[in-house]
């Protein structure tokens, strides 16, 4: 399964597991072959290279439908053929949700730090530095405020690219400050989850963010402000076992993988294949854990409706 693979690789902070070095063909038998390649490597000079502009075309991982990225973007990153919802980042969501793509980003000055000196195959600090160098992301969550059809809303959205959207101290603190902002300005709160779970490199501190965020939701609740939890592909572990499942409304995008334990772990535990559709949004709706499933194309309208209904 594609999704379970990148789930763990991303939590480990890598795109792909390191591939094995190609074995060199040095045996005498190999040398005798007439089709033996004598000179290795690509010898075309860079100037003569014909470049295909990167990201011009996009292929749907579900139905293999190919369309231009512009077309896909106009369709809000939803496959025009099979309705597959591509994984998108926080900024894409802000652009989709807020009126005229106008919003302000808050608390972007909070940065993760390697307080424990955690080192696995790489040090945590090195991972952070590498991601900061490679992307414009500051951490796995961005908080923005703006209007949805004229209604004020605070949105916290996750970026899966940043160590698998993992829950660490920074996400916890941004979440907490967003709640304070909601209370101060009497605004509803929407959190868009997309995460493999807790950030292991912060050890018990990341675990405690589950308690911290839930405690803040308790304050939001006392202020009588609605909390909408939108779960997208994938949402696992510490997120689903804390604020992800604590929405006044829990909603999800179609086909998203959502659960507590990852599919691989469950499969290894029960030693059986998992039924088709297991841990998908539709499965959760069926079992009573979601209020409804929302297509990205009508997300803005649904949010407007929710806010209006809570206000009215």
């Amino acid at each position: 399964m594609k999704n379970e693979e990148d789930l763990e690789a991303n939590l480990a902070g890598d795109g792909q597991p390191a591939s094995e070095e190609p074995t060199s063909v040095e045996s005498s038998e190999a040398r005798e072959r007439w089709f033996q390649r004598l000179r290795k490597g690509i010898l075309t000079s860079t100037a003569d290279k014909k470049e295909t502009p990167e990201g011009l075309w996009s292929k749907c991982p579900e139905c293999n439908y190919i369309c231009t990225t512009t077309e896909l973007k106009e369709n809000l990153f939803v496959c025009p053929k099979c309705n597959y919802h591509h994984r998108i980042g926080s900024i894409d969501y802000f652009d989709i949700i807020f009126d005229n793509k106008e919003y302000s980003i808050h608390f972007d000055n909070i940065r993760s730090k390697d307080f424990l000196g955690f080192t696995d195959l790489k040090s945590y600090q090195k991972r952070l530095d590498e991601i900061h160098a490679k992307t414009t992301l500051k951490d796995s969550m961005r908080v923005a405020t703006g209007n949805v059809n004229g209604n004020g809303l605070v949105v916290a959205a996750m970026d899966f690219e940043f160590i698998g959207g993992s829950l660490g101290s920074v996400m916890g603190e941004k979440f907490a400050r967003a709640v304070d902002y909601c209370i101060e300005h009497k605004l509803p709160y929407l959190v868009i989850s997309k995460s493999g779970g807790a950030r292991m490199m912060e050890s018990a501190f990341s675990l405690m963010q589950m308690a911290k965020t839930s405690g803040k939701l308790s304050q939001l609740s006392d202020a009588g402000l609605p909390f909408i939890s939108l779960l997208t592909d994938p949402t696992f572990g510490g997120i689903s076992a804390s604020f992800g499942m604590l929405g006044d409304l829990n909603i999800a995008e179609p086909g998203a993988l959502i659960g507590f334990a990852g599919p691989r772990v469950i499969k290894e535990t029960i030693k059986k294949d998992l039924p088709p559709g297991f841990q998908r949004s539709e499965f959760l709706l069926d079992h009573g854990f979601l209020d409804f499933i929302v297509d990205r194309k009508i997300l803005r309208d649904k949010l407007t409706q929710i806010i209006t209904l809570f206000k009215g």
Binding site: S112, E173, K212, G215
Partner: peptide, 8 residues
């Protein structure tokens, strides 16, 4: 619990 965490 809100005090738990570390960041710059």
């Amino acid at each position: 619990f809100c005090k738990m965490g570390f960041w710059d």
